[in-house]
Amino acid sequence: MSQDVGHAVQGATEESQLYGVLAEFEDVNSLMSAARKVRDAGYKNWDCYTPFPVHGLDKAMGVQSTRLPWVVLCGGLTGCLTGLLLVWWTNAISPDGVGYALRGYDFQISGKPKFSLPANIPPIFELTILFSAFGAFFGMLAMNLLPKFYNPVHKCKRFNRVTQDRFFIGVEADDDNFDLLETTKLLNDAGASAIEELEE
């Protein structure tokens, strides 16, 4: 804990470490212009918190497009391949030397070919969709580092309104550019209606 920070944190005990500052904004416009200022000041470890996805905020923050679609593509290809192998292995072949329970069951049914793509497309298609959806959902959670049940921002009482009707910008203390007084001043000048310091 650096010395110039220690005196500024109100009510902080000696052991606690500064997590960052949290600034509250009343509406979308003030949040948006403040986000641009924080971005232009060169901060890296900071974030906007909003009750709903705000159109244009990604650009105002300088957030790059996510790689999630690639995760979904990988999921889809895995599903497609799994489906194809599943129907082929279980219905089209029955190789010797494979355990009885795992060996495929090649059974002749109504004179149909043992393996033909048209008859097998529905399960393959469904598994493609299923694995892609897993990729989208679990990929999103993993990239967002969720679930996360402890987060210092929840210590701020005002922050309870972030999921209702208030907007916040949080700048973390471990950012290279972070300086308590300067960062606070920047957020204050940007139109914050309240600023709080948070402990780790």
Binding site: D47, C48, Y49, T50, P51, F52, P53, V54, L57, D58, M61, V63, T66, L68, P69, A136, F137, G139, M140, L141, M143, N144, L146, P147, K148, F149, Y150, N151, V153, H154, F159, V162, T163
Partner: peptide, 17 residues
Amino acid sequence: SIGWTGSNRHWHRYERA
């Protein structure tokens, strides 16, 4: 709610998902 904070970086990936 698995620790959702309304972070815009989260919203970005969330909306894409």
